[in-house]
């Protein structure tokens, strides 16, 4: 039990590193949760719980600087408790949501704490000991690892009973408020993205994108395809104005390059 709890917590820590590193996919509920099923010796049950959580959290992802509810610890603890309590998916989902919300707050604290690293880096760089940059980078990895390892260990080792006791102390209206706010906060991430992108004329395209989604209810992929065309048209208009500056041959080659890039972007 202790050994399994430790292995599961290490796994949660590694999934957190995937979230802040390579994005292999283990930061998603299905891939994070399915491994917990394997560790606990009930792969099929784990698969079903993790799949349910994946569907529930399909749209939960980071935008800009926004830290979403932590689906990693939610999925790992949810799957573990679902299997260990013998109550399956229902228990898994019930535990996963509050855990994800609590670790989300913890993740924001870690992101604030890590400011220390970059200030330390300022000093290191000044002194010329550049190899120490590597250490600071990996120190950041350690803080993110622990931010999932510790809460997941507490939750899994002390079990669902302890989680319920802790949650019972939090008033229901606070939990409701937290859930509501976790759905509003993506606006901060979008605001952050827009603050980097809102230059001359860009309000036109923001309005277009919003209108296509809000009134016409087009799927994101369709809007992306339309946006690609608008990007090309906008480029043509901008380029016609500036075409006087460059010779014909040069603007021809530049057209080809931009077209290539737009094709590539669309494949994303």
């Amino acid at each position: 039990m202790l050994l399994q709890s430790i292995i599961i917590s290490i796994w949660a820590g590694l999934c957190a590193l995937d979230q802040f590193g390579p994005h292999l996919g283990f930061r998603r509920p299905l891939l994070a949760g399915v491994v917990v099923g394997l560790i606990l010796g009930d792969p099929v049950q784990g698969l079903i719980i993790a799949g349910t959580l994946e569907l529930m959290w399909l749209g939960t992802n980071n935008v800009g600087a926004y830290q979403p509810p932590d689906v990693i610890s939610g999925a790992v603890v949810g799957t573990a408790i679902g299997i260990m309590s013998g109550k399956g998916t229902a228990a898994g989902v019930a535990v996963a949501i509050p855990v994800a919300l609590l670790v989300q707050q913890l993740s924001m604290i870690i992101m604030t704490f890590n400011v220390v690293l970059v200030h330390r880096a300022d000093k290191v760089v000044e002194s010329g000991e550049f190899y120490k940059i590597d250490k600071l980078q990996w120190l950041g990895a350690l803080t993110f690892f622990l931010s999932r390892f510790v809460p997941v260990f507490i939750a899994v080792y002390l079990g669902a009973g302890a989680i319920k006791t802790v949650l019972a102390m939090v008033p229901a209206w606070v939990m409701t408020g937290l859930t509501v706010s976790s759905k509003i906060i993506p606006a901060v991430g979008l605001g952050m993205l827009l603050s980097m992108m809102m230059k001359k004329d860009m309000w036109i395209f923001l309005t277009l994108g919003f209108a296509f989604a809000a009134w016409m209810q087009l799927p994101t992929m369709a809007i992306a395809a339309i946006a690609l065309c608008f990007a090309a048209i906008y480029d043509m208009i901008q380029n016609r104005e500036g075409a006087v500056e460059t010779s014909d041959q040069e603007s021809d080659t530049s057209k080809v390059t931009v077209a290539d890039d737009d094709e590539g972007s669309y494949d994303l």
């Binding site: 509003i184 606006a187 992108m197 395209f205 277009l208 994108g209 209108a211 608008f230 090309a232 737009d262």
Partner: peptide, 18 residues
């Protein structure tokens, strides 16, 4: 070009993420 694409899809994302 990437900016136009990004801003427009972000405008759409407001409806699905917030």
């Amino acid at each position: 070009g990437a900016n136009v694409l990004g801003v427009m899809v972000t405008g759409a994302l407001i409806t699905s993420t917030v």
